[in-house]
Amino acid sequence: MTTALIVIDVQKGFDDPYWGKRDNPDAEANIKALLDAWQERRQPIVLVHHDSTKPDSPLRPGQEGNDFQSILDGVRADLVFGKKVNSAFHGDVDLDGWLKTRGITSIVIAGIQTNMCCETTSRVGGNLGYDVTFALDATYTFDLEGLTAGQLSEATATNLRGGGFAKVVTTKELL
C-alpha cells in the first residue's frame, strides 16, 4: 500500500522567539528519520509551508522564516505547496484530489505545530476518509493560553485518538 508522508510547516520561522517555549526537542530528528525512510522506500512525500498573512509573523512569504528548515534540504518531494490556513487540505493545491488521483488512501502526518496545522490536517484527512497516522514525536508545539506545549500535545493525541480521526504513534512504532 502506498502511504504519503505529509510534512507540515517545518520552517525556519518556528525557530523565532516570537513563538515562546516549545516541547519535544527530538522532533526534527524524528521528522528526518521519517523522511529518510520514505525516500528509501520511494513512498510519496508532501511538503507544506505556511504562508502567513499576519504582518508580524515570521512565516510571511518573502521572509527568511518562510523558508524550510535545513532538515528538508535535499528531500525528494513529490509535491510542495503553501497554505494560509491550518489544514493542508485547504492550501494552494487540491491535496485531496492529488492523493486520490494517485490512489493514496493512507497518510502520515509530521511537522509543526502539533495542535494547530498538524492536528487540523489530521482531522480533515480523517473526515475525508483517509487512514491517518499521526507521528506525535515527529511534531512539536509551543506553550499557549496557560497550557504547556506538552499538555497541548497530549490534548492533540487524545483528540485524534478519541475522536477517531487518527492513529497516534511514535516514530519508532511507525518505522
Score class of each variant (00 low, 15 high):
residue 76 R to F: 07
residue 113 Q to L: 11
residue 32 K to V: 06
residue 47 L to C: 03
residue 1 M to Q: 14
residue 160 L to S: 06
residue 130 Y to D: 12
residue 112 I to P: 01
residue 156 T to N: 08
residue 169 V to M: 15
residue 134 F to A: 11
residue 144 L to W: 14
residue 145 E to K: 11
residue 42 R to P: 02
residue 73 D to K: 14
residue 27 A to W: 08
residue 164 G to I: 08
residue 67 D to E: 13
residue 105 T to L: 14
residue 111 G to K: 01
residue 114 T to Q: 05
residue 112 I to C: 01
residue 65 G to S: 10
residue 81 F to S: 05
residue 90 H to V: 00
residue 100 K to L: 15
residue 167 K to H: 13
residue 112 I to R: 03
residue 136 L to V: 15
residue 154 E to I: 06
residue 60 R to P: 03
residue 76 R to N: 11
residue 174 L to Y: 09
residue 157 A to R: 10
residue 102 R to I: 07
residue 67 D to W: 07
residue 61 P to Y: 03
residue 80 V to H: 02
residue 101 T to P: 07
residue 60 R to D: 00
residue 8 I to M: 05
residue 54 K to A: 13
residue 175 L to A: 12
residue 149 A to G: 06
residue 13 G to A: 09
residue 99 L to I: 14
residue 31 I to N: 03
residue 73 D to M: 09
residue 106 S to Y: 03
residue 18 Y to P: 08
residue 60 R to W: 00
residue 162 G to V: 09
residue 36 D to N: 12
residue 151 Q to T: 14
residue 152 L to P: 09
residue 16 D to M: 01
residue 46 V to A: 09
residue 35 L to N: 00
residue 151 Q to M: 11
residue 40 E to M: 02
residue 105 T to K: 10
residue 112 I to L: 10
residue 68 F to L: 07
residue 148 T to Q: 13
residue 126 G to A: 13
residue 48 V to L: 04
residue 151 Q to A: 15
residue 105 T to N: 12
residue 59 L to D: 06
residue 16 D to W: 05
residue 3 T to F: 07
residue 8 I to Y: 04
residue 9 D to S: 05
residue 68 F to Q: 00
residue 142 F to Q: 10
residue 19 W to Q: 04
residue 142 F to T: 12
residue 64 E to A: 12
residue 69 Q to S: 07
residue 98 W to M: 11
residue 19 W to A: 01
residue 76 R to Y: 06
residue 119 E to D: 15
residue 39 Q to F: 07
residue 97 G to Q: 13
residue 134 F to N: 02
residue 53 T to K: 10
residue 1 M to S: 15
residue 108 V to I: 15
residue 156 T to L: 08
residue 10 V to S: 02
residue 43 Q to S: 14
residue 11 Q to H: 08
residue 55 P to G: 13
residue 139 T to S: 10
residue 49 H to V: 00
residue 131 D to Y: 01
residue 48 V to T: 04
residue 5 L to I: 12
residue 172 K to E: 15
residue 40 E to Q: 12
residue 41 R to V: 06
residue 20 G to F: 12
residue 34 L to M: 15
residue 137 D to R: 13
residue 83 K to T: 06
residue 145 E to G: 11
residue 108 V to F: 02
residue 108 V to Q: 01
residue 92 D to H: 11
residue 45 I to D: 00
residue 43 Q to F: 09
residue 63 Q to T: 11
residue 68 F to E: 04
residue 61 P to M: 11
residue 48 V to P: 00
residue 111 G to D: 03
residue 103 G to V: 15
residue 122 S to D: 01
residue 79 L to K: 04
residue 98 W to D: 05
residue 67 D to K: 15
residue 9 D to V: 04
residue 59 L to V: 04
residue 74 G to D: 01
residue 166 A to H: 05
residue 82 G to H: 02
residue 2 T to V: 13
residue 68 F to W: 07
residue 114 T to P: 06
residue 77 A to L: 10
residue 124 V to Y: 04
residue 69 Q to T: 08
residue 45 I to F: 03
residue 118 C to N: 06
residue 66 N to W: 07
residue 126 G to Q: 03
residue 118 C to K: 02
residue 158 T to W: 08
residue 53 T to D: 01
residue 34 L to A: 15
residue 135 A to I: 12
residue 72 L to V: 09
residue 168 V to S: 00
residue 46 V to M: 09
residue 101 T to I: 09
residue 39 Q to V: 11
residue 125 G to Q: 04
residue 167 K to D: 13
residue 134 F to P: 02
